Amino acid sequence: MKSRKERFKSQLISFSFLLPYLIVAVVFSFLPIAVVVWLSFQRGSLLDLSSLHGAGFANFAAVFTKSLYMKSILNSLFYIVVILPFGQFIALTLAFLLFRKNKVNAVFESILFLPLVVSMVSASIMISYVLSTNGPVNYLLAEVGLPGILWFSDPVLAKLAVVILELWKGSMFYVFIYMAALRGVPSDYIDAARIDGAAKWQEIVLIKLPLIKHIILLCVVLSTIAQSQMFDSIFVLTKGGPLRSSESIYFAIYRAAFLDDQIGISAAIAILLMLAVLAISIFQMTVLRSRHES
């Protein structure tokens, strides 16, 4: 048996391998979170840290009492409710159409992969041009005698433009995850179902979807987190307008900290967002798991 000294030396060596990761985690994860939590209870200017003073829970109360912040929360919920189901439906549909390996599907896979190569900023600029007053969409409408659409002047249309961009750019990521999952489904199950006379829709609903349920759960959680953190598309496409009608909760964090100089409220929104995303993710995982396992 090893002596106590030898066991301690062995544990110390093992710990030394973890030390670099722990240092990085503390410096870039735990310490920033602690600072944000501290700032959420402060009031003052980010440009003059000496002006910071305790504010208690006033910053958290302001998030729920000021209509501008509530509007950004409702906008983020709108983006999640709309983009999450439609995005996953589009991704699953395309995955079922393209998961078989052949030359034709390989061409379409290459096309669908293009949005993943383009950055969100570049994609936002492209969509901004396409939907602009003198862009291709309004040009085609004018050619058929229809009036142009002012996408970025109407609150509803501005949010719809953001949704279109997110569906085009974001859904393609999940297509490849679903295709990989479908290609991993054992062919024995499919062959047995066909021998028993199962229809095509029965293969999909009763065999393939249950077998990739954990991948669907993963994609739903990832999509929820992604939609709650929408910033680049809104910043480039609409700047949160018109009249802050398309502003997301993540954009509200940026506006409060760097435009309104309300660092305490910005930190409070960030903490609330983190807790909300954590709660929603746990809820989704619990509900979807219980449904599949029941």
Rank of each mutant, 00 (worst) to 15 (best):
L39Y: 06
F41L: 08
Q42I: 00
Q42L: 01
Q42G: 01
R43M: 01
R43S: 10
G44D: 00
S45P: 03
S45C: 00
L46R: 02
L46S: 05
L47V: 01
L47C: 00
D48I: 00
L49D: 00
L49P: 05
S50W: 13
S50R: 14
S50T: 07
S51D: 01
S51N: 01
H53L: 03
H53Q: 11
G54V: 07
G54N: 09
F57E: 01
F57A: 14
A58S: 12
N59A: 02
N59P: 05
F60I: 00
A61R: 13
A61L: 12
V63H: 09
F64Q: 07
F64N: 06
F64I: 04
T65I: 00
T65R: 10
K66V: 05
L68Y: 12
M70A: 12
M70H: 12
M70R: 15
S72F: 05
S72Q: 10
S72N: 13
I73Q: 12
N75P: 11
N75M: 06
L77W: 09
L77T: 12
L77F: 15
Y79M: 08
I80V: 15
I80C: 08
V82H: 09
V82E: 09
I83Y: 12
I83P: 08
I83E: 06
I83F: 15
L84Q: 04
L84R: 07
L84S: 02
P85G: 05
P85H: 07
P85M: 04
F86D: 01
F86A: 13
Q88W: 02
Q88T: 06
Q88V: 10
Q88G: 06
F89M: 11
I90V: 13
I90Y: 14
I90F: 15
A91H: 08
A91E: 03
A91V: 00
A91K: 07
L92V: 02
T93S: 15
T93R: 11
L94E: 06
A95F: 03
A95M: 04
F96Q: 05
L97A: 15
L98R: 04
L98H: 06
